[in-house]
Amino acid sequence: MQQKLPQQAGDDTLVAMPPVVVPVKLRQLGFDGAHLDRLDCLAEEVPVALVYNGISHAVMMASPAHLEDFARGFSLSEGIIEKAGEIRDVEILPHAKGIELKIDLAPESFWRLKERRRTIAGRTGCGLCGLDSLEAVARDLPKIDGQQKISLHAIERALQALPAAQVFNQQAHALHAAAYADAAGTLLLVREDVGRHNALDKLVGAAGRAGIDPASGFCVITSRCSVEMVQKTVIAGFPILVSVSAPTQMAAKVADEAGLTLLALAREDSALIVTHPQRIATSGEHDK
């Protein structure tokens, strides 16, 4: 991964990376008419363009941190690559108007991406476009077979540790988090972003770069559990997803069909088991 700093003039001027959290002066108003001037923090949100072998594919609004992880995780969870080694390099180019991620794909991966873009480009101005788009939502997902059990104690430990690990959110109170915990509930990776999908993509990319086997632990997210979050979790290979919020019905259905163990409304003292409870040890069994 390379990161370039200022070097040229014009519209493509390269600048320093923006901060993730920005200090600002704000006025707190009381409903009784009182006010208090205070120094606060706001989360930065910038356009991040993902460019594959010179072709712009998507622009996401994201937090400017762990962007190589984001590039790699997004590529995997969106089906652009099938394994981490298909990305040969990621170059991070911060511009005045946003950040460009130049991703160097292996030839076979780039061919798949071009075929995918060609197919999508052809679906315009016809009565089947809506059908094609709806069918695209129901992605073909791998089946999760791992049966390793995780104790409730491990899940409790991870949930208790997560707030302190959200270093950016502690300052700005506006970022989602996605975390990987091992079988004992120890948090090994935490990624934050203003976008919930981005946070999970960053976690997926970070796990791949670290050589972590997702099946050896579980994933925790602080955001709403939509179907896309379930799909990304399954594609990454996490057998268990713990969400602090409730899932949608479609998310629960997809999780059940894919064999994903889904826990929702997770708190430090309880969680709702939604699908595939066989991976959760509920009989007081603790980590070994």
Rank of each mutant, 00 (worst) to 15 (best):
residue 3 Q to S: 04
residue 4 K to S: 03
residue 7 Q to F: 11
residue 7 Q to G: 14
residue 8 Q to I: 09
residue 11 D to Y: 13
residue 11 D to Q: 07
residue 12 D to E: 10
residue 14 L to C: 08
residue 16 A to K: 05
residue 17 M to S: 06
residue 18 P to Y: 08
residue 22 V to H: 02
residue 23 P to A: 09
residue 24 V to G: 04
residue 24 V to M: 11
residue 25 K to I: 12
residue 30 G to M: 11
residue 32 D to R: 06
residue 32 D to V: 12
residue 32 D to Q: 14
residue 35 H to R: 15
residue 42 L to F: 07
residue 44 E to G: 03
residue 53 N to T: 02
residue 59 V to L: 13
residue 60 M to D: 05
residue 65 A to N: 03
residue 66 H to Q: 15
residue 68 E to Y: 06
residue 70 F to H: 06
residue 72 R to F: 12
residue 73 G to H: 00
residue 78 E to W: 13
residue 83 K to L: 04
residue 102 K to S: 09
residue 105 L to F: 10
residue 109 S to T: 11
residue 110 F to P: 05
residue 110 F to Y: 06
residue 111 W to M: 10
residue 112 R to K: 07
residue 114 K to G: 01
residue 115 E to N: 15
residue 118 R to L: 15
residue 118 R to F: 10
residue 118 R to G: 13
residue 123 R to E: 08
residue 124 T to M: 10
residue 127 G to D: 13
residue 127 G to P: 09
residue 129 C to W: 02
residue 133 S to M: 08
residue 134 L to G: 01
residue 140 D to S: 11
residue 141 L to T: 01
residue 142 P to Q: 07
residue 144 I to A: 00
residue 146 G to N: 13
residue 151 S to M: 05
residue 152 L to Q: 06
residue 156 E to N: 04
residue 156 E to K: 13
residue 157 R to S: 11
residue 157 R to H: 05
residue 158 A to P: 08
residue 158 A to F: 00
residue 158 A to H: 02
residue 161 A to Y: 03
residue 164 A to P: 01
residue 165 A to R: 15
residue 165 A to L: 05
residue 165 A to W: 01
residue 166 Q to T: 14
residue 167 V to Y: 04
residue 171 Q to D: 02
residue 174 A to R: 04
residue 174 A to E: 06
residue 179 A to L: 02
residue 182 D to P: 04
residue 186 T to M: 03
residue 188 L to C: 08
residue 189 L to I: 15
residue 190 V to L: 06
residue 192 E to N: 00
residue 199 A to W: 08
residue 207 A to N: 06
residue 207 A to G: 12
residue 208 G to H: 06
residue 217 G to H: 01
residue 219 C to R: 03
residue 223 S to V: 10
residue 225 C to I: 09
residue 225 C to R: 05
residue 227 V to P: 05
residue 227 V to F: 07
residue 227 V to M: 11
residue 228 E to I: 05
residue 233 T to L: 12
residue 234 V to R: 06
residue 234 V to N: 01
residue 235 I to W: 02
residue 236 A to I: 05
residue 239 P to G: 01
residue 241 L to G: 08
residue 241 L to K: 04
residue 242 V to L: 12
residue 243 S to R: 08
residue 244 V to C: 14
residue 246 A to P: 03
residue 248 T to P: 07
residue 249 Q to V: 15
residue 250 M to F: 14
residue 250 M to P: 02
residue 250 M to A: 15
residue 253 K to H: 12
residue 259 G to Y: 02
residue 263 L to Y: 02
residue 265 L to E: 12
residue 269 D to H: 15
residue 269 D to E: 13
residue 269 D to L: 13
residue 270 S to L: 02
residue 270 S to P: 02
residue 273 I to W: 07
residue 275 T to I: 09
residue 275 T to R: 00
residue 277 P to K: 02
residue 279 R to L: 14
residue 281 A to R: 04
residue 282 T to V: 14
residue 284 G to S: 08
residue 285 E to Q: 10
residue 285 E to G: 03
